[in-house]
Amino acid sequence: MPGGDFHPWLFFILAAWILICGLGVVAFKKVMYSAASMVACFLGVAFAYALLNAPLVAVVQILVYVGAISIVIIFAIMLTEVQDGGYDLFFNRQAVLAAPLAVAAAAVLTVVVVTADVGQIGDKALNPSVKGISLLLFKGYVFPFELVSLVLVAAMIGALVLARKEEEKS
């Protein structure tokens, strides 16, 4: 059972929530609905992190995903809101092939994961505390941390350059 100091049913309810919301993202014809479903899914995932003894990740998930990314995506939707008229299908033509592939992948990966020897596993939660994570981050992984900050700066500048209107030329 999905151990920890919570009722197993909690896990199943949460998992169902996450998966149904995920399916919603794929299945809603309207883009806005998909976005809403995605936000709901992200919230579920944040809750999962909390159950997995990782409160910091849960908080970051809410801040970044539910807060920032969702907003950016909704902005993008609104900026590009077009009449999808002329396109009846919201799935493309390879859906016929992609559906069995995805099902097969799910089956295979599940089997692989479930039968995998993941080594010594206890029910005891091992995730480090916030303090532990910060120690890890600023001691052992300080170099990747700095690199990530660089990536963020680059992404920020890149997004500005890409999305800005070209005034001087046209």
Partner: peptide
């Protein structure tokens, strides 16, 4: 990370 010993977070 939560369940495996040795993952060390």
């Amino acid at each position: 990370s939560n369940f495996r010993a040795g993952a060390l977070g």
